[in-house]
Amino acid sequence: MSNTLEISNLSKNYGDFQLKDVSFTLPTGYIMGLIGPNGAGKTTVIKTIMNLVMKDKGEVQLFGKDHRDFEIEAKKRIGFVYDTPNYYEHLSLKRLKNVIAPFYDRWDENIFMDLVGRFEIPLNKPLKKFSKGMAMKSSIALALSHHAEFIVMDEPTSGLDPVVRREMLDFLRNLMEDEKKSILFSSHITTDIEQVADYITFMHKGKVVFSKTKDAVREQYALVKGGNELINEATKQHFVAVRTGAYGFEGLTDDVSQTKKILSNSAIYEKATLEDIMFFNNIKTKAEG
């Protein structure tokens, strides 16, 4: 299996914010969701991949080659969707397309027109009059019309209404029938990631907390609830974090089978959502100071 993206020990120091030893790998043919609270470093990682931000340390490989030594070659194979569509706002989509298309030798007018038709985007209306959904769809149409093999999207679904979001996710999923395509997309809307991602990379405060398959995450984590008498210094060790209330506790475990052995059946086990995982990891980091 080849890898579309390989990041190892990536570090970047902004003074008040640092990326620390970020490493993860996206195998070809899969969708990876990059999640984390605001300020976790998702956008910095994406910008580093695109070489829009200079890294201090570490390696980034795209299609098996260094992302800077082979930058032009790699970028021809990437479709990049920004979080804030930063257009020449007075232009129509048609004219903007005419500006962008010549940069790509593999630009495919048929694909573009097909996407425009499917997304029902007006071609001659100035972009500044577009709704957020329209603007995002335009970005995607522009990013996907040159046979990109790797689609990188920074918060593509934030600010979109549920219907458009669902359409977008379905569209991404359809792309994956082609096993040579890979997608990396960041979002803090964890349900979107839960719906489409094969791999999940969770970042918090500039570090990678985990990067693994969605199934592995589902099986590893669980939300545990029960009476406060079950929680003491010893049992607490088996949780990422616990919060106790007047009538019981709620905690996140990252080792379900072990926790079940210790607490046996006196507790209730529920599936942890990505949101639960993010939330309890946040409690943990706060507790650690």
Partner: peptide, 8 residues
């Protein structure tokens, strides 16, 4: 794709 789940 049909079941809306991961390839994995």
């Amino acid at each position: 794709k049909e079941l809306y789940i991961s390839v994995i």
